[in-house]
Simulated assay, not measured.
Amino acid sequence: MNTADRLVFRILSLQVRLYHDFVRVKESTDSEALHDLRIDVRRLRSVLRPLRASSEIASLDQAAAAVANLTTRARDLEVLIAELKRHGQARQAITRQAALHALYSRVKRSSVIPTLLTALDDCPEAVRAVENERGSHRLKIRIQRAVCKQLKRLEHAIETPGFDRHRLRSTLKRVRYLIEAFPSISPISREAVQAMAATQTALGKWHDLDLWCQLSFKEDDLQRLRHDWSQRTEAALDNAEVHLRSLAHRLPKTKVSRVAVRGLPAAHTADNPFEGVIDVETGLPV
């Protein structure tokens, strides 16, 4: 199976997952449905990122971005309500439940998600068009370049003093999902991927707490939680910084990235930690 075949298979797999996620959202089957939808949209955008020079792929990426924008407010409020319930703040949670239902109704009624799902039907043909124009080998090199470019951005973000941690979190997500989409051409180790996941989780906890602290200055009934959130925010950021330092030691040097960009296999730059591993999502060797 060549690079284009793997790419098409992964996109179709994500399309199936997105259909399932959307049904769960529409039927309100569980509290994680919207979260899973947003994760799969981000994974899709990571898969599409190396091919956005194609107008068809760029349009599909815009459709996926529209889904992310549509669902952001609902997810943020969903997480806040869960936090309020954990703290026994039933009144504050209840007063926000109606707003959450309204946002969910907006998501369900919107044509944005069905538009994305329909557009995905034509994606395999668009990928084949890129393959026919460039060739499978050039397609692989394009993906390698995208991986290395994002790794360099992450390295820069971590090493730059005062770099906004919200932006760094977004960069980390982009890099992680891109690498997980194409593990066989990733120049980093399995341990580095695991460190990325742990760092993303730590930054995510800090991100939520920081947003809640800011919100407590705007919404009077949240003021009583501000002190607790503020203390937890500081602790969460300290923990995230520890993870970031650990991750920085596991990222490849720039020299490794340059070799990978030239199209050499990962084994030419470092031991390939994914050799012989089966992708649990697709059932295929990575």
Rank of each mutant, 00 (worst) to 15 (best):
T3G: 03
A4K: 00
A4C: 07
V8G: 00
R10L: 08
I11K: 04
S13R: 09
L14T: 08
D21C: 15
R24E: 10
S28C: 09
T29V: 14
S31E: 15
E32N: 11
E32M: 12
A33E: 02
H35K: 11
I39K: 12
S46D: 04
V47T: 04
L48D: 01
P50R: 02
R52I: 13
A53N: 09
L60Q: 03
Q62G: 05
Q62V: 06
A63K: 12
V67M: 08
L70H: 07
T72I: 11
R73T: 11
A74L: 07
R75C: 06
L77P: 00
L77G: 03
V79I: 14
L80V: 03
L80F: 06
A82Y: 00
L84W: 09
R86N: 15
R91T: 10
Q92D: 13
I94Y: 09
T95K: 11
R96W: 06
Q97P: 04
A99F: 03
L100N: 04
V107I: 15
S111Y: 11
S111D: 14
L116T: 04
T118M: 08
E125D: 13
V127A: 00
A129I: 12
E133D: 11
H137N: 08
H137W: 09
K140L: 10
I143A: 03
Q144L: 04
Q144G: 02
A146V: 01
Q150P: 00
L154Y: 03
E155Q: 12
E155R: 13
T160H: 03
T160F: 01
G162I: 07
H166L: 13
H166S: 10
R167E: 13
L168S: 03
K173E: 10
K173P: 00
A181P: 07
F182I: 00
P183E: 07
I185R: 05
S186T: 05
S186K: 01
S189D: 13
R190Q: 12
E191T: 13
A192L: 12
Q194H: 05
M196L: 15
A197F: 02
T199S: 15
T201H: 08
L203I: 08
K205C: 03
H207Y: 14
H207K: 07
D208Y: 06
W212I: 02
L215E: 06
F217C: 12
D221K: 07
L222M: 13
R224Q: 14
H227G: 00
H227K: 08
H227W: 10
S230A: 11
Q231N: 12
N239R: 13
H243L: 06
R245E: 10
R245T: 04
S246F: 15
S246G: 15
S246L: 14
A248C: 07
A248Q: 15
L251Y: 01
L251F: 00
P252K: 06
K253L: 08
T254P: 06
T254C: 09
S257G: 08
V259N: 06
A260F: 04
A260H: 05
G263R: 09
A266V: 15
A270F: 14
A270E: 08
N272E: 10
N272S: 09
P273A: 04
G276S: 04
G276N: 04
I278N: 12
I278F: 13
E281G: 00
E281I: 15
E281D: 13
T282R: 11
G283T: 08
L284D: 11
L284E: 14
L284A: 14
